[in-house]
Amino acid sequence: MIIMHGVTKRFRRIAAVDNVSMTLDAGDSVALWGPNGAGKSTLIRCLLGLHRHKGVITVNGHNARSHGKRARASIGYVPQEIGFYDDLVVGEAIRHFGRLRGIRRTDIDGTLERVGLPGQLAKRVRDLSGGMKQRLALAIALLGDPPILVLDEVTASLDACGREEFMSFLGQLSGAGRTMLFASHRIDEIAALAKRVAVMESGRLTAVMDVASFASSHGVGSFVHLAIPERTRPRAMCVLSEGGFEPRLNGVGIIVPVRTDQKAAPIALLARASITVDDFEIISRATADAHAPIHGPT
């Protein structure tokens, strides 16, 4: 379904994507995993024909660059955050993108129901919450039922609650014979949705493995998600890094990977530095397991 061969994209002298080759068969579900700046989003943009790149990408038999329109017709795309037509009414937005996909009469009600946004079609896009916006984006991506779904850090800008909900929809979608490629740095998402994991580092594809071996090799026990007021976040990051953790910022707080027997350590560390922790949440492998079974190796 998707064939990438020697894909390289340079911005000036820096190779954002460096000689990536990968093949996704129909029904495959591959997670792009790696730290920020590893080239996941750039690779996805190359796939969508948004960047000039070296190498060849074929989507459903169409070259992503030279026949981008054909290629993209097979792809439903959900970005990290949609920023379009704020003044538009939801129904009209859906109809517009439906038209661009050549769907003459879009079933707006049905589409919205499918993503859990029934009766919202008269609302302005501006007035939707983050999670609802992402579900709208998903609804648009599913218009016309494309065989490929491409997701780029789709939950990165959502809060915990929104992410839970959104994941549950995605969970339903995978395995319907649809090919999925998504970028994420959340192990729970990967575990829930992916069959295989492609690990990226500084633009290179360092490993492609099935999700089970990925889970074991990256078997950090759990993540602690800390809700910390925005102004103290930078200092908290410093404190945690100095304390031997590898903290990561996300939209609403800090995520710290921890060993299973040290879940309280980051909070204690911050308390000693007099940084207020408003709330915390433990995300363990067990939680991820609860959502969906881990697929066996393919």
């Binding site: 050549g102 003459r104 499918r114 039922d145 339903q172 979608l173 395995g175 319907a176």
Partner: peptide, 16 residues
């Protein structure tokens, strides 16, 4: 519509 007529039809993709 004219293009649609020419193109082969496909059933609406159902949710899993």
């Amino acid at each position: 519509l004219a293009r649609e007529r020419r193109a082969a039809r496909r059933p609406v993709g159902a949710l899993p």
